[in-house]
Design a protein around this nucleic acid. Structure first.
Length: 226
DNA sequence: GCGACAG
DNA sequence: ATCTTGTCGC
């Protein structure tokens, strides 16, 4: 049973990030793009009721058909603090992942991995804690900068931190549509992270994994009794 | 020093 | 993240 260490405060959270960051693995262990089982995870909040719902949806990478779904509902246990998002989302997400009966070869997170102020975003944190290969696909560039990629699906450009370090890529998943921001989480190369993100987005800007998880966690929150 | 900042 | 109907388009 995997659980997330919960810090008492922001300083404690940063200490945990510093400790876990050294366990990020950069060598490729995940399935090749287009193969295996890929899980998408996402979370929805209800501040009124102090509830958080997470969903984990597993797709067959070859067909993008849903293989299994799981949800988990809990109490919000950490505030939203930029840079510390994982502490707010992970407890419930891990519970949803553990409710699955299959083990995915890759987990796609709605947010960042190494593209993070402290180089340890949600996807890195989830990957290290579960041991599963993970990538981050975010909808916003956060504080990072990039040259606008070409306007065709598959076009990309480096995503850089303020010091110039490449921390991910802006990836166009649909012709003429705003790119998504891909970064490595754990046990996946940046090339394959982008290839997976592209393969998972044949029709929309956002990967099918994230789209399924997003709608499922919203539904779980609506139907939650508490 | 202050504000901005993934979801 | 969330506040939110109808409407445009395939």
């Amino acid at each position: 049973m995997t659980s997330a260490k919960m810090p008492a405060d922001e300083a404690g959270a940063k200490a945990i990030q510093d400790e876990l960051r050294g366990r990020v693995v950069l060598t490729e262990t995940g399935p090749p793009p287009g193969e295996g089982l890929i899980a998408g995870v996402d979370v929805a909040y209800d501040d009124e009721r102090d509830l958080v719902a997470a969903a984990a949806v597993v797709l067959d990478a070859a067909t993008l058909r849903v293989v299994e779904e799981a949800t988990s509902v809990g109490r919000v246990s950490f505030p939203y603090v930029p840079g510390l998002l994982a502490f707010r989302e992970l407890p419930t997400v891990l519970a949803a992942l553990e409710a699955l009966t299959v083990t995915p070869g890759l987990v796609v997170c709605d947010g960042y991995g190494l593209a993070h102020p402290r180089r340890f975003g949600l996807a890195c944190h989830l990957g290290v804690v579960t041991g599963l290969p993970a990538i981050g696909v975010a909808k916003n560039p956060f504080t990072f900068t990039y040259e606008e990629p070409g306007d065709r699906r598959g076009d990309l450009s480096p995503l850089r931190a303020s010091d110039g370090e490449v921390v991910g890529r802006a990836l166009r998943t649909q012709d003429g549509i705003k790119p998504v921001y891909v970064s490595v989480g754990h046990r996946v190369s940046l090339d394959n992270a982008c290839a997976h993100a592209l393969a998972l987005s044949p029709r929309f800007r956002i990967p099918e994994t994230t789209r399924h998880a997003d709608s499922l966690c919203r539904r779980a929150l609506r139907e939650a009794t508490a």
